[in-house]
Amino acid sequence: MADMVDTPPLAPTPAALGFLLSRRSRPPRMLGMKVPDRATIEVLLTAAARVPDHGKLEPWRFIVLQHAACQRLGALAQDRGATLAMDHDKVDKTASGFRDAHLIIAVVSAPKPSDRIPVEEQTASASAACLSLVNAALAAGWGACWLTGWASSDRDFLQTGLGLSASEALAGFIHIGEEQRPPPERPRPDISALTTWQDT
């Protein structure tokens, strides 16, 4: 087993647990123009890829959208909304969300043919990559948020704007940038009401 990589024995990491217990997404409106550089983004993507991936299929990929690309998608969202005769305020909110962004990473769900790993499980891995990317950005001191919205399921938008194939889907748009101000805390789930214990 010479190709096996030695890993240290598992040990408690209170700081990491504390981070997870207090993590909070930062809405795009609270992010500034400063964004991580390419080297930092590559580190964040490396962390995002360390998710459960049964069969080692890598059923996801990343598209790094910098400011000019975000503006292009904003214009496309405006055009698509008009074509679909959607509510103007809804369209404008989506379009401005792209136009105002300086960095968005699109996480693409890209299932691979497999007779062992169902598509649903591969899709779940792509969703895990979204959360992992948000957490990596937060842990690195950046504000981050995972968004979807109507554009994330509009096939014309995805194919024209991002070049997705017919077999791919958008797992999420991850907005990343410098935090301008901390968001207020919000109510959290009552874990006791959501948990069932079974001992037999």
Score class of each variant (00 low, 15 high):
G141P: 06
K112G: 05
R116C: 11
P9I: 08
P59N: 02
L44F: 08
K34M: 11
D79Q: 14
K90P: 02
P118T: 09
V51M: 01
R50I: 00
V64N: 06
A169T: 11
V91K: 07
P113Q: 08
D37F: 11
D79E: 15
P8I: 03
P27Y: 09
M86T: 01
Q159V: 11
R116I: 09
A144V: 04
L21H: 15
G32A: 15
S152M: 10
L162I: 08
P59H: 09
K93P: 06
I104P: 01
I41H: 02
L138M: 04
D53F: 07
F98R: 04
V43N: 12
T123C: 06
S192K: 00
V119C: 12
P9K: 13
P183C: 02
V35I: 15
P52V: 02
A126P: 10
L17V: 11
G149E: 02
L57Y: 12
A95F: 05
R26N: 11
G32R: 14
A95K: 14
G32T: 06
R72E: 15
W60N: 02
Q198I: 13
I104T: 07
G81C: 13
F62S: 03
A49S: 13
D53V: 02
L45K: 00
G149N: 05
I117T: 13
R24G: 06
Q78N: 13
R61K: 13
I176R: 03
E120T: 12
L194M: 14
M30N: 08
